[in-house]
């Protein structure tokens, strides 16, 4: 079970949270101008790295706020937690198992 640090409430166990998939997927500025392929990419195509993944979580059983997490998808280690709208902090590569 993951121990996730909510930026507002502190460390809580995983069942308190809801997973939101990849973070920082930008909504198209001009949706009407998009081709079918661009739409497919926006709606369906996602990163699926073996290593560091920037993802969203919602603290559904707590403050109910969304936030971002950098997590290693091989060790499950939570590498950083940051608020919506912030950019991902740099991570120490020595902590990442997936990249090795």
């Amino acid at each position: 079970m993951l121990l996730i640090e909510c930026p507002w409430c502190g460390p809580r166990e995983e069942p308190e949270f809801h997973y939101g998939g990849q973070a920082h997927v930008v909504r198209p500025a001009d949706p009407a101008a998009l081709s079918d392929a661009d739409w497919a990419a926006y709606v369906f195509l996602r990163d699926n790295p073996k290593g560091v993944f920037a993802e969203r979580w919602c603290h559904t059983a707590g403050c109910r706020r969304w936030f971002n997490v950098l997590r290693d998808t091989v060790s499950h280690r939570v590498l950083a937690v940051y608020r919506m709208g912030e950019t991902a902090p740099a991570v120490d590569p020595a902590l990442v198992e997936g990249a090795r």
């Binding site: 998808t73 091989v74 997936g98």
Partner: peptide, 13 residues
Amino acid sequence: DGYNSYAQRGSVH
């Protein structure tokens, strides 16, 4: 398990 993973390991809940 809800999250992305390559660990062949899931959560007990």
